[in-house]
């Protein structure tokens, strides 16, 4: 019960044949070789698998690959431009917004979506938007600082 799907991933059109039961996350990681998105909890709670589907954050671990057919997916690998990190990525480095890094792809994808939607978020807005991205290393303080710094940098 395989199906051929066409997905634009990080701006590139891709066609891939997958079993219907393939999650979008496994499709990205195993079929397309994009291992930046991670599987943590596997039930949509931790956010390590966050990608953008048509610009909106989703949990790719509980999305079927077939449901992305004809849509656009942005993963962490698609954030940086040529040779240059996205301001959110740079801010996470400068402000210590990660440690082990396993949740970081999901964090930066979510933070990018936040700043796209709201370039000047308050701390409360950052906390509300980022609620679904768990981090076990940082205690979140520096994630908030990173997003604040990225917002500031984008405004400058």
């Amino acid at each position: 019960m395989n199906r051929k799907i066409r997905v634009t991933v990080n701006g590139t059109a891709r066609a891939v044949e997958v079993p219907t039961y393939r999650t979008l996350l496994d499709c990205l990681r195993n079929d397309l070789g994009l291992t930046g998105s991670k599987e943590g909890c596997g039930v949509g709670v931790c956010g390590a698998c966050t990608v953008l589907l048509d610009g909106k954050m989703i949990s790719s671990c509980i999305a079927l690959a077939v449901s992305a057919d004809g849509h656009e997916v942005t993963t962490v690998e698609g954030l940086a431009g040529d040779e240059r990190l996205h301001p959110v990525q740079q801010a996470f480095i400068d402000a210590g917004g990660f440690q082990c890094g396993i949740c970081t792809p999901g964090q930066v994808v979510s933070a990018k979506a936040l700043l796209d939607a709201n370039p000047n978020p308050s701390d409360a807005e950052i906390r509300e938007w980022m609620l679904g991205n768990l981090c076990r290393c940082t205690g979140y303080y520096k994630i908030i600082e990173s997003i604040r710094a990225a917002a500031q940098r984008s405004r400058a």
Partner: peptide, 9 residues
């Protein structure tokens, strides 16, 4: 409900 990400889905 849950998080923005889940509410998107």
């Amino acid at each position: 409900v849950a998080s923005v990400r889940i509410r998107n889905m």
